[in-house]
């Protein structure tokens, strides 16, 4: 598993690239910008459309700026004919997705295994 400093870990599985957020809180603008650069570089490094899974298992708090980041990531992946799935979302964070109706926009799975299979 590749550790990308300091906020995500990336695991290249057979059918998917699994990006796990390391931090409990994702808030600061600089953090979000760094996350965007890191994740976009993972997307760009793939030769074709990629199946990316974002694992929120460690995340306990996020702001609306993170939702914006997810939208930008999903657009980039879809432009490259890939697929984005979210998983392991804490109930309080899931509530934020429901309120903003982003549950309609994103494919959300209970855990990494079901996201890989889905």
């Amino acid at each position: 598993m590749a550790q990308i400093k300091p906020r995500v870990s990336v695991k290249y599985a057979e059918n998917a690239t699994i990006v796990s957020f390391v931090d409990e809180k994702i808030l600061e603008e600089t953090d979000i910008r760094a996350l965007q650069e890191t994740i976009m570089s993972v997307i760009e490094s793939a030769s074709g459309g990629m199946n990316m899974i974002l694992d929120f298992g460690n995340v306990r708090f996020l702001s609306s700026a993170v939702l914006g980041l997810l939208i930008r990531i999903s657009k980039r992946i879809y432009e490259r004919d890939g697929r984005l799935k979210l998983c392991n979302i804490n109930p309080k964070i899931y509530e934020v997705f429901k309120i903003t109706r982003l549950t309609k926009t994103f494919d959300i799975y209970d855990d990494v295994d079901s996201a890989v299979d889905g």
Binding site: L67, G68, L69, I71, R72, I99, R101, K104
Partner: peptide, 10 residues
């Protein structure tokens, strides 16, 4: 729904 901004007030 597909715009990155504008969710804070909500």
């Amino acid at each position: 729904l597909y715009k990155p901004n504008g969710r804070g007030l909500l």
